[in-house]
Design a protein around this nucleic acid. Structure first.
Lengths: 165, 165
DNA sequence: TATATACCCTACCATTACAGTCAGGATTAC
DNA sequence: GTAATCCTGACTGTAATGGTAGGGTATATA
């Protein structure tokens, strides 16, 4: 079973995209700042997300990423599947060759667990996450934080520009 | 989320114990043969299982391990918890310090998932696994295989003994 | 047309964990 | 006493994760 920072980052980034869907294409730089995820790492993740047709990209200045479809048609399971190889809880990858070519004692149990997890995450759309109050609160906090940092950066630049001029 | 061969092996071994509960203490050597798990590795796992009071040990010849309570009072979640550090799906270990000391955007989602998995595995006792037909069939296959190998080994020893005498 | 912004891609690397080995002990039935 | 068994700790190869580095390529805007 593989559910690590990789899958979590991917879902977080996609949720960020869904939350800011109204602002046109969203740059990875923005996501990187808001969610504190390394930009290069995000690029790797979004490469896979694009290959799996979950996002589409716009190049050039003002560019960024967009969800490839409506947020109620994108589910957490799809995102995790896209960046992790599988969300399979078995050791054999579901093939049933876990003990010397045949199934092991606990094969069926892990199959059941896999189904359970998959069903759960398949039922959660980005739209349903966006609608959650606890998530909206966190999102607002991060947006404010980013705006604050941007204001600081701008003011620094103004000072530096005025000292030059 | 950590669910790897380690946790799977532990559950498999405990299930083996439950299936052979009538035969007195079960040696790790036997489990190792039947389930094809390295003996040294099993020893490490059982050290943790013992610390978590899931099994009790009997030393000396004829010794081995026993379930520390009835198989309907031991649940899969407890076993996985005992050998893995946690079955937590969050990155922060549930503390909510996932993004710079505060919670990240997807914290609540991973908490929900953790609960989901934990509830599922907490509801499955060793007894309920032992009762499953598909598991009984696998178990019979492994027992036969072991008996066959033992018979072969014995016959080899007889030949070797007779050639010596 | 120059330039800055942003996506895109490949190779590389440090750390960590897993899965397993090895070597030696301690305990106890026979 | 000897063999079977549990018990413990140190060690190791491999693979994955999480991340860095350094190049590209496309395109909006001045």
């Amino acid at each position: 079973m593989r559910l690590t920072t990789k899958g979590r980052y991917a879902v977080t980034a996609m949720l960020d995209l869904a939350l800011h869907a109204d602002n046109g294409p969203i740059s990875l730089a923005g996501i990187s700042k808001r969610q504190e995820i390394s930009l290069s790492y995000l690029e790797q993740l979004f490469s896979k997300l694009r290959q799996n047709d979950l996002v589409s990209s716009v190049r050039g200045p003002g560019g960024g990423y967009r969800l490839s479809r409506s947020s109620d048609e994108i589910f957490v399971a799809q995102i995790v599947d896209a960046v992790n190889e599988s969300i399979d809880a078995t050791n054999c990858g579901g093939t049933g060759s876990c003990r010397n070519g045949e199934i092991c004692l606990t094969h069926h149990l892990w199959c059941d667990l896999s189904d359970q997890i998959h069903d759960f995450l398949s039922g959660i759309s980005l739209a349903s996450l966006v609608a959650r109050k606890d998530i909206q609160e966190v999102s607002e906090r991060l947006d404010k934080e980013e705006a604050l940092q941007k204001a600081e950066a701008d003011s620094m630049q103004r000072i530096s520009a005025s000292s030059l001029g």
